[in-house]
Design a protein around this nucleic acid. Structure first.
Lengths: 174, 174
DNA sequence: TTTTGAATAGTCAAGGTTGACTATTTGGAT
DNA sequence: ATCCAAATAGTCAACCTTGACTATTCAAAA
């Protein structure tokens, strides 16, 4: 997937890093932006190496286990800008896995789906609270915008679901 | 993936169908809800067969090529309701591939990213127009809600991006 | 000083996903 | 009659993703 490559190349644009470092950064800071797992990152880095976008060399500090250090090449830099331009001009596909359940709402009676949707609403609320209690990272304008973007969608989702629930409730009461 | 199964089981809850029919329905009506491809649908149906959630039998009408007809079993029905309940109570993960580009916005000068973001804005606008010019399907409450949900996010995205662009423009003008 | 749990670092088999492909039939234009 | 495009129906090798696993080092408690 192209986004995986863009993400990894972008991280390496800042500085060369070893695998663990890259994955730690993704896990701790980028959970909102990507769901890429550690193994996928390693596999993607391997592919980027083969393509010549990234250069890998092993390093050993003291008697710590060896580490794979990845650096972006000139070719990789060019590729990064290509992917970046494409990504910035692209409109997201946006399909929500929860819509699949929504589509079959009619298969359950009100008494069943009402508490389920409320459970979903509570989870969304928690995500928003968590988000708003997290201080901005300070990694730059772009990162802040990406976070803001995420929050916008969380809130849109929350308000929509709240409205759905109250409309369904009204229909039921009739 | 569980959503794939939920979707296919849900479709088969209405009536037994052959593979082509299922895929046609997904392609023509469900492009907004899922990105599952034909081959994935066949593979998933195979797995559902092995699991005993679905029963497949070959059928031949006239001298048309044979068709695989899939029906949901009792076990599949139970599984469908399990997956449905879980899905309805679940909050979406929501990660937007376009956020990855956003994060690296700082790597491009204003003159470069400004037209790219505008291009994205135009694409979003077209998607919204297309959406609003499409009449409701009439497949039931749930389907209508899923469509509404999609539109909510499209609009949220559009307004956010418009706001980003005008803010960036203001910063630039300073 | 020994145990133990977290951090460090990465591997791989198993499973999921899809682009490209095969093949036949039908309907309409030529 | 004949040709061509679209519709019908599905297959498969190649590629992508990940859960579960291995193995070492460090820090701190017991």
């Amino acid at each position: 997937m192209d986004e995986r490559s863009l993400l990894l190349l972008g991280i390496l644009m800042v500085q060369s890093q070893h695998g663990y470092q890259i994955n730690e950064f993704i896990e701790k800071n980028l959970g909102r932006v990507t769901d890429m797992k550690k193994s996928t990152a390693y596999a993607t880095l391997d592919r980027l190496c083969e393509a010549g976008d990234v250069y890998m060399h092993a390093e050993q500090e003291g008697n710590r286990p060896f580490r794979k250090v990845y650096s972006i090449t000139q070719r990789g830099t060019t590729h990064f800008f290509e992917l970046l331009r494409f990504n910035l001009a692209k409109a997201d596909k946006m399909n929500f896995s929860s819509d699949i359940g929504m589509m079959f709402l009619d298969h359950l009676p009100y008494e069943e789906f009402f508490p389920l949707l409320n459970e979903r609403l509570v989870k969304l609320h928690k995500q928003i609270e968590l988000f708003e209690s997290t201080p901005p990272h300070g990694y730059g304008l772009g990162v802040d915008l990406a976070m803001e973007h995420h929050l916008v969608h969380l809130k849109a989702d929350y308000h929509w679901l709240a409205s759905v629930i109250s409309r369904l409730q009204a229909t039921q009461a009739k």
